[in-house]
């Protein structure tokens, strides 16, 4: 079964919720945590883990055989990302950073002048780690610096995570509601939307709940940093969107300390009210899994 942690706004605590759930649920479930926030993966930092088992994520990069090219411009016309520039002499030039590897130019060329090369745009990792008495498998996707096409890396990391047999695949997504987020959560039984009591938290919660509705996915809302602002509008919005607020993690200095130490709060301060709320949330998720 797959469960996703998302939430729209950046910095609301998606990864904090994901690693604490992972730490608790792995006590009696075989658990894979998939960090699909490929532009800024940080679950390994929060878990104090090293990335291991690096594999490149390659996409197709076109090369032009200029001896075959008949200067028809077909490749430039089909290119959706502007990666194929037709120069004044009619010859195409490839701008690698813009290329998404879609192969349209390859299929459009009438004289087979496009040669398939490849380019590494990111990496996936697989780390086996021990957390207290339990073990989890952490799969991480990481986009190379300067690259802009996240979906191939998200999908590669997702595939790698799903290839590991488990009772629960817990997915941690990036912020936003882009196609990368939709691809990350695809097939989830449940979407846990993490938000915070701020106007921007409210705004982005609306977007992520709309996405969940569009995908026909059950959504639970976790309010992180509870207590730093009013929640009336959040309560109203969640009701309107047919979702439910299932947990409120109090704003606390201990959470920051656990973050800095790379130990989930449920292990760092197991007797704290924050840890208690995470345990309650984990029990609810546990109820869905079994």
């Amino acid at each position: 079964m797959m469960v996703s942690v998302s939430g729209g706004k950046g910095g609301t605590g998606k990864s904090t919720v994901a690693v604490n759930l992972a730490a608790l649920l792995s006590r009696d479930l075989r658990l894979v945590l998939a960090d699909l926030d490929v532009e800024n993966p940080n679950d390994h930092i929060l878990l104090g883990a090293e990335l291991a088992g690096e594999r490149p994520v390659n996409i197709m990069l076109p090369f032009v055989n200029y001896q075959k090219c008949v200067k028809c411009g077909a490749c430039g016309r089909v290119c959706d990302t502007g990666a194929m520039l037709i120069s004044p002499d009619g010859l195409p030039y490839v701008i690698p950073r813009l290329c998404s590897g879609c192969r349209s130019c390859y299929f459009a060329c009438p004289v087979d002048a496009i040669v398939e090369g490849k380019r590494t745009i990111g990496y996936t990792y697989l780390s086996e780690l021990e957390l207290g008495e339990s073990k989890i498998t952490l799969v991480t996707g990481s986009l190379r610096e300067g690259e802009e096409h996240t979906p191939p890396v998200v999908l590669a990391a997702r595939r790698r995570a799903l290839s590991v047999e488990a009772d629960l695949h817990l997915v941690d997504t990036s912020a936003g509601t882009s196609n990368s987020v939709a691809a990350a959560v695809d097939g989830s039984r449940l979407l846990i939307a993490v938000t915070e009591p701020t106007p921007l938290g409210l705004h982005d919660l609306d977007l992520i709940l709309e996405m969940a509705q569009t995908l026909g996915m059950e959504a639970w809302v976790v309010i992180n940093r509870a207590g730093i602002g009013p929640e009336d509008d959040h309560v109203r919005l969640v009701r309107e969107r047919g979702a439910e607020i299932v947990a409120r993690i109090p704003y606390s200095r201990r959470v920051v300390e656990s973050y800095i130490r790379g130990v989930p709060i449920v292990l760092h301060s197991p007797n704290s009210p924050e840890a208690e709320e995470f345990r309650r949330l984990a029990e609810m998720v546990r109820g869905v899994v079994s």
């Binding site: 959706d80 502007g82 701008i95 998404s100």
Partner: peptide, 20 residues
């Protein structure tokens, strides 16, 4: 380039090239 999802600058350059 105005309506392009990505590579807007290159699409604008391409249009200028067509105009010489």
């Amino acid at each position: 380039g105005a309506s392009a999802r990505s590579g807007a600058g290159i699409k604008a350059v391409q249009r200028l090239l067509e105009e010489g």
